[in-house]
Write a protein that binds this DNA or RNA. Structure first.
Length: 385
DNA sequence: CGTCCACAGGAATGACGGGCGG
DNA sequence: CCGCCCGTCATTCCTGTGGACG
């Protein structure tokens, strides 16, 4: 039931499989294939289909004895151009240190390795939008034109993105080169999700361990959330775990509902616990202000309390500029809701609220030795007249 | 209808911990 | 060991701005 598992068959994705298969097929005859671009929201099977097709390609090419190299990189996890490039090098058995070299140097080594091995190399850049938004499209630009300088090797790029609008961030030259072929992954509907769940459940669950209605509910909940198969699978897996723990003989709708809460809860706690100290203090400030004030707070007030909390815990406060940035980051991950508003004569600022339950904040902070006392702290601005 | 608040958020720059090849 | 480069986080300095107040 894990979503990194690639099943033998991917229901409702025949069209995309055939399409991608057709695009990469020329590789088997020793000629490079077109670059391709794959769009679709999370959990629509982009990664699964791509890996599935490329696995087939690998085994087929082994049969035929042709020399094909494939490298799959998740750009969001890699994070920087450097780490993406070093993954590419690793796939070619080119040794590079995990840091220290100039990006250009790593790129040169990659090119040399590629040329030396006379390979056709397929680069899969998953969640490529994350990289482009954070770092710009220089790497992509270089990659699209790497063939011009190669004597023997050839590269093709398969880009995968969750975000359709991300095209706007691309240089037109890169865009036209990259989207020689495009494949769009429509979200699954509830019926399709149900089928997917049942297929997987055949392997993962014993017979009669699932109530029909439980599976239907998983599918419905995930369908409501842009047809995310990953979410559907998570829900069913967690529901299964919950049922097992309480010794029930089958997974019911109620288990699924509990699983829904659980999945969300765990996600937030995970993010919350791994926050840097200063972000935690900012979050705590919002929490404290929310205790008394009306529904929202503004940047300046938050910063004031944040500074007090810093003093309380013996840290030197960051600048307001930085805290403003932290607030935006917290907004991005959903822990805060912040939106810019103008209050006329009284300036332009952000209205900020907690994006999660207050009890959750209290719970996580109380579990941390360092921050336990802060949730009970009363800011001076709230004690005065 | 202009002012002017209280910031937003971009750009440049720097400190820091890490690693390179020579 | 040196001089150089990397990514990350933060500071400093800055220009931009929606709209209530006067």
């Amino acid at each position: 039931m894990r979503h990194d598992y690639i099943p033998k068959k991917l229901p409702h994705r025949d069209e995309q499989i055939n399409c991608l298969g057709g695009i990469v097929a020329p590789v088997l005859r020793g000629s490079p294939c077109s670059n391709a671009f794959i769009y679709g929201k999370t959990g629509t099977g982009k990664t699964a289909v791509t890996k599935y097709v490329l696995n087939m390609l690998t085994s087929k090419s082994r049969e035929l004895g042709s020399s094909v190299g494939i490298c799959y990189v998740n750009c969001r996890l890699a994070g920087t151009e450097y780490r993406v490039l070093s993954s590419l090098c690793e796939a070619l058995d080119v040794r590079v240190p995990f840091t220290g070299l100039a990006v250009g140097e790593v790129f040169d080594r990659f090119k040399q390795g590629l040329d030396a091995q006379k390979k056709i190399f397929i680069v899969v850049l998953d969640e490529i939008d994350a990289l482009i938004k954070a770092r710009g499209d220089t790497l992509l630009y270089e990659l699209t034109r790497v063939n011009e300088t190669l004597r023997h090797g050839r590269t093709s790029i398969i880009g995968i993105s969750n975000d359709l609008r991300f095209k706007e961030f691309l240089d037109p030259r890169v865009l036209s080169s990259l989207s020689e072929e495009e494949i769009v992954f429509r979200p699954y509907d509830a019926a399709e999700l149900q089928e997917i769940l049942w297929k997987r459940a055949q392997v993962a669950f014993s017979e009669n361990a699932l109530q029909d209605s439980a599976v239907a509910l998983c599918a419905a909940l995930a369908a409501a959330e842009h047809g995310d198969a990953r979410r559907a699978l998570d829900l069913l897996r967690v529901a299964g775990e919950l049922a097992e723990r309480e010794g029930a003989d089958c997974v019911s709708e109620e288990h699924v509902r509990q699983a829904e809460k659980r999945v969300e809860h765990d996600r937030i706690v995970e993010v919350l616990e791994n926050l840097p100290v200063h972000s935690k203090l900012v979050l705590c400030s919002v929490y404290l202000l929310g205790k008394t004030k009306v529904s929202y707070s503004i940047t300046g007030d938050i910063y004031g309390i944040y500074c007090e909390l810093c003093e309380q815990s013996g840290l030197s406060p960051l600048t307001q500029r930085r805290v403003s940035g932290l607030i935006s980051e917290l907004d991005m991950v959903g822990l805060l809701n912040a939106r810019v508003v103008s209050m006329g004569r009284y300036g332009r600022t952000k209205k900020i609220r907690l994006g999660i339950g207050r009890s959750l904040v209290r719970m996580v902070f109380s579990n941390s030795d360092r921050l336990r006392d802060l949730v009970g702290y009363v800011p001076t601005c709230l004690t005065g007249p």
